[in-house]
Design a protein around this nucleic acid. Structure first.
Length: 279
DNA sequence: CAACCCACCTGACTGC
DNA sequence: TGCAGTCAGGTGGGTT
């Protein structure tokens, strides 16, 4: 479900609604999602303050106060949602939603995680262990930060035979670019998603980096893309789906040249492009 | 190594 | 209405 803009939108919502609140209780309805959940470490969050909410790639990093400086890593997988409700005074509290797997009570508010497919994750580690965490240590640069740019793309694609879109979606190369925004970025840059990465020119690398950054920034500004599952912390939807130029638009006409948008499957993922605007 | 493909899991939708 | 088949925004792990 969520790519970088959706996760970033959730991060901002959590920061706005829950930062500096104390955890008053935790509830776990199962002990695993994609990976096992460290139950004791999650329970140990009770009594601590949520002091910061950061993001690395598509992971949310919830930082807590106190000994060991624990950090909860939350990944939404394909269908995960993280949202905030007011606590109820009714006995028994809020009813559990279908596929709701865990909650953190933070005084009068509740952080709730639902995930139908359970491809998501919840882990808790000490802040000091983050740099070497097995899920984080192999990740490439953040697309909106300095290290990533046209020079980076050009340098790191020279011997790569994979399709450009596949390269963009590989988190070892650059994080946060999922299936929607990879197609959209290729469209904005005027490059076919099927092009071998090594055949991308320096000029195209520059255009592509700008396209990735622009499309992600635009999507964040619009609160992300809601196709089916995604919602923000207030259970509102994103608006970027209105701006999608090619994703999900098979057969529709390109806004720039009116050619029919093409669809194909690349590395098992639906891929869309304009056969005229993208070479 | 790089490239490829599968699995994980449930729900929504399509077509018969 | 039911049912089988297909697809879905991610990504680690196993195999070539």
């Amino acid at each position: 479900m969520p790519e970088l803009p959706e996760v970033e939108t959730v991060r901002r919502g959590l920061d706005r609604t829950l930062r500096n609140r104390a955890v008053t209780d935790v509830h776990l309805r199962r002990h695993d999602l994609r990976w096992p959940i460290p139950v004791d470490s999650v329970r140990d969050l009770v009594g601590r303050r949520l002091i910061a909410i950061d993001r690395r790639a598509k992971y949310l990093l919830l930082r807590f106060s106190g000994p060991g400086a624990p950090v909860a890593l939350v990944h939404l997988g394909m269908s995960g949602r993280l949202f905030v409700d007011q606590a109820t005074k009714r006995a028994g509290g809020l009813a559990w939603e279908k596929h709701e797997h865990w909650r953190l009570d933070l005084r009068d508010r509740v952080m709730r995680y639902t995930d139908a497919r359970r491809f998501g994750a919840l882990d808790v580690v000490a802040a000091a262990e983050l740099p070497t965490h097995w899920l984080l240590s192999g990740l490439g640069p953040e697309p909106l930060e300095e290290e990533f740019g046209g020079d980076y793309i050009f340098a790191h694609t020279r011997r790569r035979k994979v399709a450009l879109k596949t390269w963009l979606m590989d988190a070892r190369n650059v994080v946060g670019v999922g299936n929607i925004y990879a197609s959209e970025a290729c469209y904005r840059a005027g490059v076919r998603p099927t092009r071998r990465a090594a055949r991308v020119t320096r000029a195209e690398s520059m255009a592509l980096a700008a396209a990735v950054q622009d499309v992600l920034a635009d999507a964040i500004r619009q609160g992300g893309t809601t196709l089916r599952d995604y919602i923000g912390v207030d259970q509102d939807t994103g608006y970027f789906q209105r701006e999608l130029a090619v994703y999900g638009r098979r057969g529709e006409s390109c806004a720039r040249c009116a050619s029919a948008v093409k669809h194909l499957v690349l590395s098992g993922r639906a891929t869309y492009y304009c056969p005229t605007c993208q070479r």
